Computed example of a mutant assay.
Amino acid sequence: MDTSVMDLPAPVAARLRRPGWRDPRLLAGLAMVAASVLLGSWAVRTAQATVPVYVTRGALVPGDRVAAEDLAVVDVRLGTVDLDHYLRADRPVATDGVAVRAVGRGELVPASAVGSSDELDLRPVSVTLVRAPSSDVVPGALVDLWFTPPAPEDDAEPAEPNQLAGALTVAEVSTPSGAFGASGGSSVQVLVPSSLLPVILTALAAEGTVDVVPVLGTGG
């Protein structure tokens, strides 16, 4: 039996080739790193970007003229509010713009709160009070008007008060100084829809008392 051993060629170890610049895997990795850097940079810039927006210095009530010089400007970060809903300071303000609804002091001015005087169907009416008004009765607050008939001269049951109007906007409050302010003599100017003028003017001319009752939470 032939027991000779055949000499086989020794295996040659495969050499790992260093990836070149044209290797698809290397290019894909570089692209992912570059995209991550750009995305992070964009996120940082966006988080730091601000837009100037107008805020009120004092309460605005319907009919007030809205002009840039009467407002303050604050910088608002992008993404914190929908800036298209507010009056931006980097855009011109209409020269004939007026407030068409109340905006509290120090609030961002909604774009929808500024319009034309033609949109308003309100008339200012002054109500003289027999008692000092509540501290919640301030410009921009909402109030209800109540009428109390005079007390009967005989033993008849007194008539109950009745509400004349609800949620009227206060335009102005005048309170005399000194002792008269505590006992009465104050007047509150409210904005009344045209349709309610007959009822309210009749009550103001009649014997009895008209009271201004604040709607809580609207006095700023």
Rank of each mutant, 00 (worst) to 15 (best):
P133A: 05
H85D: 14
A132G: 05
H85L: 13
V61H: 11
F180P: 04
H85M: 08
G140N: 10
A141D: 07
S112H: 10
A72S: 13
A151N: 07
V213Q: 09
T3V: 01
T50C: 03
G140Y: 04
P9W: 00
P152V: 15
V76Y: 01
A89H: 12
G166A: 12
V55R: 12
V130D: 11
V76D: 06
A205P: 04
V51W: 02
L16A: 06
R105H: 08
R17M: 01
S177R: 15
D7M: 01
P62D: 10
G63N: 05
L39I: 07
V188E: 07
A111N: 04
A151G: 04
M32W: 01
A171E: 13
N162Q: 15
S177E: 14
L216G: 14
R123L: 05
V81H: 10
T218W: 07
L26P: 00
V212I: 12
L38V: 12
E107Y: 10
L168S: 07
D7L: 01
T202K: 14
S116V: 02
V109Y: 03
V76K: 03
Q163I: 11
V192F: 01
V213W: 03
E119C: 03
P92Q: 10
V143H: 03
A34R: 05
V93T: 14
G104S: 15
A159E: 15
P193W: 03
S36Y: 01
A171H: 07
E207R: 11
R25D: 08
V53P: 04
S4P: 00
P198W: 03
G185M: 06
A132D: 01
E172H: 12
S186F: 00
R25F: 00
G185Q: 07
V210D: 12
G79Y: 05
V109R: 09
P214K: 15
G40E: 11
P11L: 07
V138R: 14
D75Y: 02
T50I: 05
L71E: 05
P139M: 05
E119M: 08
E107C: 11
G181A: 13
A35T: 11
F147Q: 14
V190A: 08
A102S: 15
R105D: 14
P149S: 09
V5W: 00
G185V: 06
S36G: 15
G178M: 08
A111Y: 00
V93D: 10
